[in-house]
Design a protein around this nucleic acid. Structure first.
Length: 693
DNA sequence: CACCCTCGAGTTCA
DNA sequence: CTCGAGGGTG
C-alpha cells in the first residue's frame, strides 16, 4: 500500500471515481447494473484506501463520502435545473501550469483567469425565479440534491428577494455555505460544556447546522454563504465571470472579496502561493484555490466532461489534518534521560511528507489526548513541520483498543524511572553515566551544530555502548575517551569499516575532525559538556566573561549569576555539575587529549570585551534562506558587527532579515511593524549600520 | 510579583 | 516549530 506513489495514487483514484460514478448513475438513474455489487464495493474500498494514504485526493464530492444511501429521508429531493458539476484537481504548480497550457491550446488564445478561494464548506444551489428565492438545495449527487430551503432562509446575508430590477425568469446561483472558524471553536466549547458531541471540523459543523429538522436551531448558528458561480441562466448579460460576480453583488448576493482576475497562468500561480501563505488568516477554512477562465464565451466553447467543466480547475493545498491508525505507543530516552512516549502510526502523507512517528511528550499528555493503542487518530503538522497527535476518532472505536501504560523501567538500561524532583510529571532514567540512551544523546549533542559541529559523530554516538561487534568493547564507554579515540577503536563500528576490512574514509576524516575540534572556541567546549541549562547562548556569555573553564569552576554562585543571562538556577547547575567525579574525569581526559579549555589572550574574569561595530546595540533576527549566508553564518556575522542575534521576533527586535522560506517570524515582523531586510539590505546593515540602509 | 522576552530541549523528515 | 521555564524588568 505505502509503495504507491502520490502520482500513481492520483491516477488510480481518478479512474476509480469515474468507474464508481458511472456505475452509480446507471443504477440510480437508469436502474441498471453495470457491475456486480461485490465489485462495486471493492472499488469503493480501494478508493478509501488511497484517500487514507493521500487525503488530499478526497474531494468534497468523492463517492466515498456519500456511499450507503446518503439520500436523507428528512429532506425532499430537488432536481437541479443545471447539473452541479464538480471540479478536477491539481496538486502542484507544475500540474496547474500544464492544465493552463492545454486549456489555452484548446481555446486557441491567451486567457485571463479568475482566481478565488475554494471554501471548505457545503455547496448550495439557490434557485431564484423573477428575483425571488424559491428553493435552496444541497449538491447531492450533482443531479438531485436535498431541499433545505426552510433552513437556508434563516441564514443572514442570503436575500429572499434580489435587489434591483431586471432579474431573469430563472437563475441558479451557486455558492458555499460555511461556518466561520472562530465561531466554530466557540460552538464546540459550548457543545462540550453541555456534554454534547462536538464537530470534527467547520465543514461538518456547517453541514450539521444546515440539516437540522428544527430551523430555529439553524437560525441560531452563524452560518455564512459566499457565491462562486451560476447554474442555469439563459443569456447572462455580461461577457465575463468576474462581471457576473459584480452583477450578483449588485443584486445583494454575498460575493467574496478575495477573488482576483489575472492576465496569465503565472500570475494565477502567484495568487496560489500568496494565499497559501495566509490561508490561516481568512475567516473560513480554505482547502484550495479555484481558477476559472474568466471569459464566459470561451467557457461555453470549452464545455465540460461528464463530471467537470474544462474551463475551471481546483488547486488543492496539502491538508493540515489527516487520519491514520495508532499502531503503538513506545518510549524513548533522550540525553537528559527523560522518558518520552511517542506514537507509532501507519505511515501517512501529510503536508508534503510521510509521517511515521509523533511525540506524545509524557504520560499526562497521552491521557489528556485520550488516545488508545489501535485507535484511528487525527494528525497534523504543527507549523507544517512537526507531526502532532490531535486526538482519537471516537466513532471508529471497536473495543479492541487498549490503553497505554507507562513502563516503570528504562527501555534501554532497565533502571527504574523516577521523577527528577517531587511533583515532576516527567520520568527520567537515573543512570546518567552508563545508560546507552544517555551516552548516545550526549555524544550526539557534542557533534551537533550548536556544539562542536563534528560530522560523522552521530554514527559513533549510535554505537556507543551498543551495536559493537561480538565480544569487543564499544568504541566509547562515555564521552570521556572521545578525544583519545583511535582508528582501531573506531573500526569496531561497522560503519567505519570497508568491505575489505580496512578503515573507511569517514573514519579517517572523523579522527581529523576531532583533532580540529580540540581548539574550537571555549563556548563550544562548554556546550559539549552537557551541563543542564547551558546552551549556546549561556555558554557564550560565560566564556566571554570568564575566559577559561578553570575560572568558571572556581567562581561562586553569586559571581556566576553576575553574568548577564545567567541566574541562580544556571549557576547552581554549573556548580553541581563540577562536583560529580565522572564529570571531572571527562575534563581531565579531554585535557590530556589536548582540548583547549581557555580562550587564548583572555585576561580573566570580567574582561569580556564588547564588540564595537556598525550594529552595536541592535537586535537582529535572521530567518529564511539569506543568500550568501548559512544559518549560523548569519548569526556570527551579526555578532561580528556588534549586534545581538535573537531567535524570536518581539517588540525589542530592531531589524528582521528575511530570505525566501521565511515563515511566522516574517509575519510577526509585519505585525509589529519592524523593518524587514532582504539579503542585500542585511549585508548593508552589517557593513554600515542603519545609516547605510 | 506579574509580566515579556529568550533560551533550552525535544522533535520529524528529506 | 512549540513548549515550558529561566531571567530580567517595571
Amino acid at each position: 500500500m505505502s509503495e504507491v506513489s502520490f502520482e500513481q495514487a492520483q491516477v488510480e483514484a481518478q479512474q476509480l471515481t469515474t468507474k464508481i460514478m458511472d456505475a452509480r448513475d446507471a443504477y440510480y438513474e437508469r436502474d441498471e447494473s453495470l457491475i456486480a455489487d461485490v465489485e462495486y464495493d471493492a472499488l469503493i474500498h480501494r478508493l478509501e484506501e488511497l484517500e487514507r494514504l493521500y487525503p488530499e485526493l478526497q474531494g468534497q464530492d468523492s463517492p466515498t463520502l456519500s456511499v450507503g444511501g446518503s439520500a436523507s429521508t428528512l429532506f425532499a429531493p430537488v432536481t437541479h435545473a443545471a447539473r452541479m458539476m464538480s471540479l478536477d484537481n491539481v496538486f502542484s504548480e507544475e500540474q496547474f501550469l500544464d492544465w493552463a497550457a492545454k486549456t489555452e491550446r484548446d481555446a486557441g488564445q491567451k486567457l485571463q483567469y479568475l482566481c478565488e478561494l475554494k471554501i471548505d464548506g457545503l455547496a448550495i444551489n439557490l434557485r431564484y425565479e423573477n428575483g425571488t428565492l424559491v428553493s435552496a438545495a444541497t449538491r447531492g449527487d450533482g443531479v438531485v440534491g436535498e431541499d433545505v430551503t426552510a433552513n437556508v432562509l434563516t441564514i443572514a446575508g442570503i436575500p429572499h428577494e434580489l435587489a434591483g430590477s431586471g432579474h431573469p425568469p430563472l437563475v441558479e446561483i451557486r455558492g458555499e455555505i460555511f461556518f466561520p472558524v472562530d465561531a466554530f471553536r466557540k460552538l464546540n466549547i459550548q457543545l462540550a460544556e453541555a456534554g454534547e458531541k462536538v464537530f470534527a471540523n467547520p465543514r461538518n459543523a456547517a453541514s450539521g447546522s444546515l440539516r437540522q429538522k428544527d430551523t430555529t436551531k439553524t437560525a441560531s448558528r452563524p452560518l455564512h454563504m459566499l457565491v462562486h458561480g451560476i447554474g442555469a441562466w439563459e443569456d447572462a448579460p455580461v461577457p465575463t465571470q468576474s462581471q457576473v460576480y459584480e452583477l450578483l453583488r449588485g443584486w445583494g448576493m454575498p460575493v467574496s472579496t478575495h477573488f482576483r482576475v489575472v492576465e496569465s497562468p503565472e500570475a494565477a500561480a502567484a495568487f496560489i502561493a500568496e494565499m497559501g501563505a495566509k490561508r490561516e488568516s481568512v475567516e473560513h477554512e480554505i482547502d484550495g484555490i479555484v481558477i476559472k477562465v474568466d471569459d464566459l464565451h470561451v467557457q461555453r466553447e470549452l464545455g465540460a466532461t461528464s463530471r467537470a467543466p474544462r474551463w475551471a480547475i481546483a488547486y488543492k493545498y496539502p491538508p493540515e489534518q489527516v487520519n491514520t491508525k495508532l499502531v503503538d505507543i513506545r518510549v524513548s530516552v533522550g540525553r537528559t534521560g527523560r522518558a518520552t512516549p511517542y506514537a507509532v502510526v501507519e505511515p501517512v502523507h501529510v503536508a508534503g511528507s510521510t509521517v511515521e512517528f509523533a511525540t506524545l511528550h509524557n504520560q499526562d499528555v497521552v491521557k489528556a489526548k485520550g488516545v488508545l493503542i489501535g485507535d484511528t487518530i487525527v494528525i497534523r503538522k504543527a507549523g507544517d513541520v512537526i507531526p502532532e497527535v490531535l486526538g482519537p476518532v471516537l466513532e471508529l472505536r471497536d473495543g479492541t483498543e487498549r490503553a497505554f501504560v507507562m513502563p516503570t523501567g528504562c527501555p534501554e538500561c532497565g533502571a527504574t524511572l523516577a521523577p527528577a524532583s517531587e511533583g515532576d510529571i516527567d520520568l527520567r532514567c537515573p543512570n546518567q553515566k552508563s545508560c546507552p540512551a544517555h551516552v548516545r544523546g550526549r555524544v550526539e549533542h557534542i557533534g551537533s551544530r550548536g556544539g562542536l559541529d563534528i560530522e560523522g559523530l552521530g554514527e559513533v554516538a549510535a554505537a556507543a555502548r551498543t551495536n559493537h561487534k561480538d565480544g569487543e568493547q564499544p568504541p566509547l564507554e562515555t564521552e570521556a575517551n572521545l578525544f583519545s579515540l583511535t582508528l582501531a577503536e573506531l573500526k569496531r563500528v561497522p560503519y567505519f569499516v570497508n568491505a575489505d576490512g580496512s578503515e573507511s574514509k569517514n573514519a579517517v576524516e572523523l579522527i581529523a575532525n576531532l583533532e580540529l575540534a580540540k581548539t574550537k572556541p571555549l563556548w563550544r567546549i562548554l556546550v559539549s559538556l552537557n551541563i543542564r541549562h547551558v546552551g549556546p547562548v549561556a555558554a557564550r556569555a560565560l566564556a566571554d566573561y570568564f575566559g577559561s573553564l578553570d575560572a568558571i569552576r572556581r567562581a561562586s554562585v553569586d559571581e556566576l549569576a553576575a553574568v548577564d543571562g545567567v541566574g541562580s538556577i544556571i549557576a547552581e547547575s554549573l556548580q553541581n555539575w563540577f562536583e560529580v567525579d565522572w564529570h571531572q574525569d571527562i575534563i581531565n581526559e579531554w585535557a590530556v587529549a589536548g582540548v583547549q579549555f581557555a580562550t587564548p589572550g583572555h585576561a580573566g574574569p570580567g574582561a569580556a570585551a564588547e564588540i564595537e561595530g556598525p550594529c552595536s546595540g541592535l537586535t537582529i533576527v535572521a530567518t529564511g534562506t539569506l543568500e550568501g549566508y548559512t544559518r549560523d553564518g548569519a548569526q556570527e556575522a551579526i555578532i561580528a558587527a556588534g549586534g545581538k542575534p535573537a531567535s524570536s521576533v518581539s517588540k525589542k527586535t530592531d531589524y528582521v532579515a528575511a530570505g525566501p522560506g521565511a515563515g511566522s517570524k516574517l509575519a510577526k515582523a509585519e505585525e509589529l511593524d519592524i523593518p524587514v531586510l532582504d539579503a542585500a539590505g542585511f549585508t548593508r546593515l552589517l557593513q554600515g549600520g542603519p545609516a547605510a540602509l
